[in-house]
Design a protein around this nucleic acid. Structure first.
Lengths: 200, 200, 200, 200
DNA sequence: CATGAATGAGTTTTCATTCAT
DNA sequence: AATGAATGAAAACTCATTCAT
């Protein structure tokens, strides 16, 4: 009845944050099979507390993925009207890869296919990427046949590539981002084969 | 009691092949969580038979991954003395990606970390890639700061990228291979940042 | 620290009543597995409040069962000296069944086996039933070998029977009460087999 | 492939029977909340074995309920053309109650509502009951306004009633069956109120 | 006093693996 | 050799109960 605002959110907020952090770490280490029990232990809370905050494992994953989309959307927005459109796109890709470098969680996206909240955040980010690419294309900074969706699918590539060597240094992804960025440039570009993918 | 050398190797060989095919299909569809029972059912054999051929799930995965390494090694060897070293490297990457396009099983590699047989096959393939890259580099077909390991880690990138759109056409990976290949070229290449990764 | 005798008993009383009503509804709908959380939600109070009023789920159930026993005891007492003893017994059974028709909670009794308060209320009701039956027997309105305990165990039968059809009308129990009442009559009664049950 | 007939069903058959027996005992003692783990322990098999035989708890319950329906259907069929139709109906009710006397599992029926196999077996039994009642009615052995469905809903009443005393003797149910049977007789019957329930 | 977050034992179910037939 | 039944260690999730605010 007297729900009032929400007073003692102190520990609850702390727990939620601890859970998200623990979950990211566990998923990064163990993959999709990371168990809710291990996540709870890592966050130093009881099993039941995980489910109080995230009713299902999917909901927890959705919170993680959605959070990352939101953070990247803010990055993209901040770059959306930078004077050098080509540099803005590169900066965006650098920030995106840098964020993944610690924990590559891109594989979590497959689980969130059916989640409309995540889908909305994903579409929002995609639109920003499309905008960054359009500006870079108009400025002649990237090849003319490149679409926002092309860039979208390549966002995770630099970090993902580093997963194939034993001990990737913390900055190894920068090499592969550089290669891909060079591949996006108009200079000496061979025409891209096939039609661009449609979104969604 | 070894009355004969191999009594009915026909059945056993057929079963082994059927199991590998079924396992690839199941892993491609269901990811690492594909169950041994489903694989057995798909191969139309009993669960026990799977374990007669592959003592553990890891061993089955190792067989799959090792097989793919072997197949790619043959491809690389066949291209190892082609007259156009640059084209040979591109052809190799195309064959590698084309093979994954149907069934992307690269995620299985993480499970085989500890398997020395797979490691040997992996190293063998890596050496061939190194060879292809060295020739292409010597021929001026790729940027001078590119190593075989750089190419190694990028092999899976084109197909992996296609996983981020809803309905990737069967040839979508060619777009991203084209971008990466353009990024490998010396024309207009910015120097690659950081040291190249060491192998292993 | 007992500054006053009862500060805001109004709220507490209202909550207790709301909780009992909510609990009856939940138990009727979901059976014994109705959760304390759902009961709290239905009563529009917090989970902790349920436990302030009823220290355990068993205590809550005991309160429900005891309340029903008390209500029926009053009904029986009001009929205890009616001029027509046979009609009084039928009226009692009708009132008892009518009360259950909306919410059949007889299954809750099994949980209260160990509760002495409930046992006392139960025995009180049983004594009244015994009285009603004795008077009816003395008046020749029911078979001579019928005991109060026999009637006691049959109280829930009419409503329970209706649970075996899909959509029992709200008055279907009257058919089965009529059959049982006819079975209690002396006319054409075959002697009851075995000894009557004892009441502990 | 070579599924052949089914050879070593020895232990499997034993286990299935042991599981059904254990499940009946557990459900009778603990109600619907009897746990699959306890059932396994009582049957002296591992937890997993329960699920090999009955994929879900509901399936196990359906097997129990369906089995009881089948057994009763055979009883009813055997009595379907007995010369004394009234005695046949009484005999059927006696057999039905006698079967429940040890383990009252009628509450399991509610769980099987959605199971079409059980529904078919239920309808089959209901048809037999309808037949027995029709014959008894035609023979003037039971009241003219009695339907098969009326009898159907009363089948469990005698045993259910015994649940309300502390230590019901093994034959106490016979007293309440006798009362109900007397209530079914035409002698001195008051007309049944309301319409008979429809099936299903 | 009421609230609702936290707890942790318990539930159903899955699955890699073993083993009797 | 093949089969499929049995095993038992998790996993996701629920819920009565406790307790800090």
């Amino acid at each position: 009845m007297t729900t009032r605002d929400r007073p003692q959110r102190a520990d609850a907020t702390r727990n939620r944050a601890a859970l998200l952090a623990a979950a990211e770490a566990e998923f990064a280490e163990r993959g999709l099979d990371a168990s809710m029990a291990d996540i709870a232990r890592r966050a130093d809370v009881a099993k039941g507390t995980v489910f109080r905050h995230f009713a299902t494992k999917e909901e927890l994953i959705a919170a993680i993925v959605g959070g990352h989309f939101q953070a990247l959307t803010e990055v993209a927005r901040a770059l959306g009207d930078a004077p050098d459109a080509g540099a803005a796109l590169v900066e965006f890709l650098t920030m995106a890869a840098g964020g993944q470098a610690h924990h590559d969680l891109s594989f979590l996206q497959t689980v969130t296919e059916g989640d409309s909240t995540v889908a909305a955040l994903r579409d929002e980010l995609h639109a920003e990427v499309e905008h960054l690419v359009a500006r870079a294309r108009d400025a002649g900074a990237v090849r003319h046949d490149l679409t926002g969706t092309d860039v979208w699918v390549l966002i995770c590539a630099p970090v993902h590539a580093t997963g194939f060597v034993r001990d990737p240094g913390p900055d190894l992804w920068r090499r592969y981002l550089a290669i891909i960025v060079d591949g996006l440039r108009p200079a000496g570009a061979q025409p891209l084969p096939g039609p661009a993918p449609t979104w969604p």
